[in-house]
Every structure is written in C-alpha cells, then in structure tokens.
Design a protein around this nucleic acid. Sequence first.
RNA 1: CUACCGACAU
Length: 307
Amino acid sequence: TVTYNCLIDGLSRAGKIDEAYATFSAMSEAGCEPNLGTYNAIVAGLCRNSRLDEGKRILEEMMKSNCRPDVVTYSILIDSFCKSGDVTEAFEIFESMKKVDCHPNIFTYNSLLYGLLKVEKVDEAFTLFQMLKDVGSEANVVTFNILIDGLCKRKRLDEAQQCFEEMIRSGYSPNVVTYSSLVDGLCKSERSDVALQLFMDMEKKGCSPDTVAYTSLIHGLCKCNKVDEACEVFEAMVRAGCPPTFVICNALFSALCNAGENREILDSYEKLSADGSSNFADFLSQILDKRKSNNVKEAHKLLEATS
RNA sequence: CUACCGACAU
C-alpha cells in the first residue's frame, strides 16, 4: 500500500493525474486496500491538477467507507477551493468537517485566510484571525505571512506594518517570506526606499535573502527607476553566492536599457533571451563593471556588440 | 507517508 501511495503521489506531482487515478483504481483490485494516505494523495493530486469536483467526490466516497477523511483531507480541499477563488465552497466544507467533529487546525485556518484575502474580504479575514485565536488554535509564521502579504496586495500597507509588529510582539520571528512580501508590497506602492531599508534590516537580523527576496527587491527598484541601487543589490547577490536567475537578469537588463533609452539595445536583448541564464549573468556583470568605471557609453557598446 | 505563505506587464 505504501508503494502505491508513493506512486500515486509521484505521478500526480508529475502532472500524470490520469495514470495516478488508474493506479488508485487498480490497487483495490490487486487486493491492496487504500488507506488514509492513499486517499489524501489522490485527493491532493486531483486538486493540484484543477479537478476539484472529483476531489470532492472522493471525499464523499470516503465518508461512506470505513476510511474516514481526516483534517488533512478536508484541508486539502479547503485550500484548493480557496486558491481557485471559491471561498463559499471552502467554507461549506469547513462547516461540514466541524459537523462530523473533525477539528480544523492551523493549516485549515491559514488556507481560509488566504482565500478570504484573495477575494478581498479583508474584514472577514481579520474576524477569522480573531476567531482562530479564540478557539485556541495557535497562529504560526505562515498565518502572519498570509495576512501581511494579503494586506500588501490590497495596498493596505499600514495594516500590514501593524500586523508585522503584532507578529514580533507575539514572539514570532519573521522569516524570509515575511520580508519578501513586505518588500514586494512596498515597492509596488512606490516605497522602494523603505523596501531597501527593510531588506538590509532583514540581513542584519541574520535572515539571509533567497532568490525570491532578491527578485522582489531588484525588480521593485528597477520599476521605481532606481537603477543604481538595483545594480548594487545585484552585485551583492552574486557576491553572496546566490545564482542570478533569468528573471532577475531580465529585469535588470531591461531597466538598464530603459535608462539608456536606446532602442537598438532592446533589440539585441531579444536575441540574448535565447541564451542560457548563466551567460546572461556573466554578461550583466561585465556591463555593471563598465558602469562602475563611469563608462556608461562603453557599457552600451558592449550591449550592442552582443547582437 | 500526504495538506498552508512571498517575486516575474509569468
């Protein structure tokens, strides 16, 4: 059974959900009884591949079988419906689990919070946040991250900031996701100066930035036309041994082109996109070196030469 | 053993 479970999980993660389902059906015929892990794996697989209704059908099947759904089963479905934007359905499942005395945990609440914020029901999210604390479910870092990110995305930066403070006051340590959400939100509200400050604060607190954190900041600085700062952060990233991804190179490169207001450069960039990311990164580093020696024209020549 | 969060006019 464990073998089957792994197989089902692996197939569905590879996008081969039909094969996963076939495996699921075949195992009972082969005399292997599906257990809770099996059911959860297939429900998660169906949901991951946007087949939520079929996932829900499995849940109903389970209720009639001797293998009852657990908090994980319910949470998978709730999370998936929330991500699809169908918060109403998610709450129906939430109610039904409580009816059968299956207790929601922090994962369940986190998913619901995410869903509410996604459909801009900020007040309801706050209410639910209060409620989960009242019923004695302990919030975790992810809970705060969801709230902070959701508020940032709704451009409610002050509340996000308050949430951040409450988080720290309550003894939770912000992680790289917390900071990235805030950095991204600040940049998108044209506060890239504050974002940069926060980013340095994060490093000072011993939280090392990852690729996403760097991308958020560099992309944000570029959008705010802070090309010099973006270049500095890029170099710091390379120095820190964080491999520059194509996305980052692209953002920085476009910004450099825009700053140079040179259309020919933009053309050469199209061709460059076909190259690998690592070449792109080396190439960018060279350009930045040129810039540093106050030789912007030279840098642009280098850009053109690549086409 | 399986379920929750961040970047890209993706």
